[in-house]
Simulated scan of single mutants.
Amino acid sequence: MDVQLTSKTAFVSGSTQGIGFAIAKELLREGAAVIINGRTPEKVDAAVKRLQQEIPGAAVSGIAADFGSVAEVDQLLAALPRIDILVNNVGIFELKPFADINDDDWAHIFQINVMSGIRLSRYLLPEMLARNEGRIIFISSESGVNIPEQMIHYGATKTMMLAVSRGLAGLTKNTAVTVNSILGGPAYSEGVAVAVEQIAAAQHQPVEQVKQHLFKTINPTSLLQRFIDPTEIAHLAVYLASPLSIATNGAVLRADGGVLNTIL
């Protein structure tokens, strides 16, 4: 299927690894030009080189910016060219008891997980509406619906992303611009892989055995019964980025492996 992305330019926040990197890679496979983002020039340069090696001839570049810094975000916005596809992916998480999450913790995670998408969308959506063309995609999480007890601040920000996305979609009425969210499930990202390998080494057990045990313990409701590969979430993002998805707007689409035990 031709998803008609060869003339499009995408910006993916937080894309030097994990789901963001997978989305950037799949967009490049479909012929889009992609600008990736990470906190440091070193991480961005390394990710750009990796993408160029994996997809020869790919039109990929990068801009370093820490979304915890308003000044760095302003510099990033000023450096952006015309963007057809915005993927609001950047995010942080941590395991922390609710009583230990102080005001600074709440403010920090809100700045990165929520305000990043707000600032980027506020800058790019008016241009998309003026051109009557564009896609904005928020990468949320099943944790925004099934709030983790040890990551309440993280879950709350993922819920807020859904609200912002739906509100922005309302501004696109009668246009060819869409705003949607993806509700991702437990993905086997680099960070998760490192943690699993450390547990396996400490317990002197095979990595695959630890993966299976952890997954069944933490995510017993999963219908997939395994960690999701980030590429499997990226495939859905590519469709939403395509002109073919015009009838999907203001929606929350699940790529959670069936972890959420709900119909909608």
Rank of each mutant, 00 (worst) to 15 (best):
L5K: 03
T9S: 07
T9I: 10
G14L: 01
S15A: 12
G18M: 04
I19V: 12
I19N: 01
I19T: 04
G20T: 05
F21E: 09
A22H: 02
A24W: 00
A24G: 05
A24P: 06
K25A: 04
E26I: 09
L27C: 09
L28I: 00
R29T: 13
E30H: 14
G31H: 04
A33C: 09
P41G: 00
K43P: 00
K43L: 03
V48N: 00
K49Y: 05
Q52K: 13
E54C: 09
G57P: 11
V60F: 05
G62T: 01
S69L: 03
V70L: 12
L76C: 01
L77Q: 10
A79Y: 02
A79P: 07
P81E: 05
I83R: 03
V87N: 06
N88E: 07
V90R: 04
V90M: 06
P97N: 05
F98E: 06
D103M: 11
W106C: 03
W106G: 03
A107N: 11
A107G: 02
H108V: 11
Q111K: 15
V114A: 03
V114S: 03
V114L: 08
M115P: 12
S116F: 02
S116H: 01
G117N: 07
R119W: 12
L120D: 01
S121H: 03
R122P: 08
Y123L: 11
L125G: 04
P126S: 05
E127D: 14
L129E: 06
A130H: 14
R135G: 11
I137M: 10
I139K: 02
S141Q: 08
S141R: 08
S143V: 13
G144V: 00
V145P: 00
V145F: 05
V145M: 04
V145C: 00
N146M: 14
E149R: 15
M151C: 13
T157P: 10
T159D: 07
T159Q: 10
M160P: 13
V164H: 02
G167E: 03
L168W: 04
A169T: 09
L171I: 01
A176L: 11
A176I: 00
V179N: 05
V179C: 06
I182Q: 09
I182T: 10
G184K: 03
G185N: 07
G185T: 08
A193D: 14
E197R: 15
I199M: 15
A202S: 13
Q209H: 12
V210I: 13
H213N: 13
K216V: 11
K216Y: 12
T217I: 06
T217C: 08
I218D: 10
N219S: 12
T221D: 07
Q225M: 13
F227N: 09
I228A: 06
D229E: 12
P230H: 07
T231V: 15
H235G: 15
A237P: 15
Y239P: 13
Y239L: 13
L244Q: 14
I246P: 05
V252K: 13
R254N: 14
D256N: 08
G257W: 04
V259S: 06
